[in-house]
Amino acid sequence: MLLTITDVHKSYANGRPILNGVSLSLDHGQTLALTGESGSGKSTLLNLAGALDIFDAGEISLGGTNLSTLDDTGRAALRRERVALVFQQFNLIPSLTVGQNLSLHARLASKHDPDWCDHLADKLGLRDLLDRFPENLSGGQQQRVAIGRALAPRPSLLLADEPTGNLDEVASTNVLDLMLALVAETSAALLLVTHSQDIATRLDQQVRLSGGLIS
């Protein structure tokens, strides 16, 4: 398995538990939707899988690397080289063009491939927008740039937290279609947090987080 989460526990700073022994696994090329009520710990679990936060107990392994053994430098390297994240907020750099935003993460990871970035631009319908700045794009266009930026380094694992939450229904469908097609093309694994059952049913697997546990 690419990603293995085993009996993971996490509490807030005040000691209140949010994850009470969560376990799941995901392999290369698989897609999994994580659903649940607001405050159920979905984003927390996503952040733990992406080495953005530290869990209290249990084990998370990505490609054979035990995340609990990594220091801050190791976690940063893992995020830079093997994991990519897409959020509800697009988080594009306003002073960079679409083309520069698209290639940014790949360049930081020393994995920039101009041909692959060109392919992503074509697939995502960004070819004619490469010289524009984010402020001149629609929400759907900005999210397509964010997806391309995430996939430019060819990550093993793509984590997406409500990636269509700020989009209308048409843009949401288009963005999801493109994301799933590109994930399939790269054989990356996708763990996606969503409140939408319609979106969840588009993925290979669905699990629900409730009371700090997978149900």
Rank of each mutant, 00 (worst) to 15 (best):
residue 98 V to F: 06
residue 90 F to P: 04
residue 80 R to M: 06
residue 98 V to P: 06
residue 73 T to L: 09
residue 94 P to F: 05
residue 100 Q to H: 03
residue 90 F to W: 14
residue 74 G to L: 06
residue 83 V to L: 05
residue 93 I to P: 00
residue 74 G to Q: 00
residue 84 A to C: 02
residue 104 L to E: 15
residue 96 L to H: 13
residue 85 L to V: 15
residue 108 L to W: 09
residue 74 G to H: 00
residue 106 A to I: 07
residue 76 A to I: 02
residue 88 Q to F: 06
residue 103 S to W: 00
residue 98 V to K: 05
residue 79 R to M: 08
residue 78 L to N: 04
residue 73 T to D: 14
residue 90 F to T: 02
residue 74 G to Y: 04
residue 91 N to L: 14
residue 73 T to G: 02
residue 101 N to V: 08
residue 79 R to H: 03
residue 83 V to E: 02
residue 88 Q to P: 13
residue 90 F to N: 06
residue 77 A to D: 13
residue 97 T to I: 08
residue 91 N to V: 00
residue 104 L to F: 15
residue 97 T to Y: 09
residue 81 E to L: 05
residue 103 S to F: 01
residue 84 A to I: 01
residue 82 R to W: 04
residue 101 N to G: 12
residue 77 A to C: 01
residue 85 L to N: 07
residue 72 D to P: 03
residue 100 Q to W: 00
residue 89 Q to R: 12
residue 105 H to I: 12
residue 107 R to A: 15
residue 93 I to L: 15
residue 72 D to W: 00
residue 105 H to L: 14
residue 94 P to M: 08
residue 94 P to D: 12
residue 101 N to D: 12
residue 104 L to K: 11
residue 94 P to R: 13
residue 79 R to I: 09
residue 107 R to C: 07
residue 86 V to F: 04
residue 77 A to W: 01
residue 73 T to S: 13
residue 100 Q to M: 06
residue 89 Q to G: 06
residue 97 T to Q: 05
residue 90 F to I: 01
residue 83 V to A: 02
residue 107 R to N: 11
residue 79 R to D: 10
residue 94 P to C: 07
residue 76 A to Y: 01
residue 73 T to R: 15
residue 91 N to C: 04
residue 97 T to V: 10
residue 74 G to E: 04
residue 79 R to Y: 07
residue 97 T to L: 07
residue 73 T to A: 14
residue 80 R to H: 11
residue 77 A to F: 00
residue 95 S to D: 06
residue 106 A to D: 01
residue 80 R to N: 15
residue 76 A to Q: 14
residue 103 S to V: 13
residue 95 S to L: 10
residue 89 Q to W: 00
residue 108 L to G: 06
residue 96 L to F: 14
residue 103 S to C: 08
residue 87 F to C: 09
residue 107 R to T: 10
residue 90 F to A: 05
residue 87 F to D: 04
residue 98 V to D: 11
residue 104 L to R: 11
residue 77 A to K: 11
residue 89 Q to N: 10
residue 82 R to L: 03
residue 95 S to F: 10
